[in-house]
Amino acid sequence: MILFEEVSKSYYTGQQALQNISFRLEDGEMVYLRGRSGAGKSSLLKLINLVERPSMGRIMVDDISLGGLSERGMQLYRRRIGMIFQDYRLINSRTVYDNVALPLVICGRPPEEVRKRAMASLDLVGLLEKRNYYPLQLSGGEQQRVGIARAVVNRPRIILADEPTGNLDHDLSLEILKLFLRFNRSGVTVIIATHDNTLVSACPRRQLVLESGRLIQDIPAAAPQAAQAGGSAS
């Protein structure tokens, strides 16, 4: 469960990124965060991943108040979140395999477990054959799939995707979307920040629509997902 209670975020420059945001996501939901560039989608994801802290309000994830987490607690918390970026954020000096294995290495898993799970994750996104390639030797779609494999390798309960198809064409975007649906079906909560209408229309789910840092609409998913959606716009 992810709960936002009257959350606001402003930066030291005075820019108000989010204003009075409240919503609730249940476990296993898949949600689109929609809005134009600068609407606050990325800021909202950063708050969930603790890259930023809210200026006001409270964020709860599985009954844990994120505001009260220590540095160490934050590090452990981030390990349970799968983060996917528009610009992939891959380490270009490391192979595809090393990139995917990184979250497990960070957790201190033994090499055998790292190998098995990284290979399984690469197999899941169809890049097992290219595990020894370097990211810059891959296409954009493939790099994003590496990013997805890295995000899911540690079996997160929540996946945050920030414009995951922003740099991809239509077909590749749908391919990536299928992966998200697959994870969601296995019970993972998926939040996708996007301004790509084709994704939403190809696979309708609950939508949180942001505009100028405000949550202006909470559109429930069409049946059968409608029954799962429990949030409401403030």
Binding site: Q75, Y77, R78, R80, L90, P103, I106, C107
Partner: peptide, 16 residues
């Protein structure tokens, strides 16, 4: 720098 940012996003400790 970029590598360290990614590692921090994935929950790496300072020690790591």
């Amino acid at each position: 720098r970029d590598e360290i940012v990614v590692e921090k996003l994935l929950g790496a400790t300072d020690r790591f």
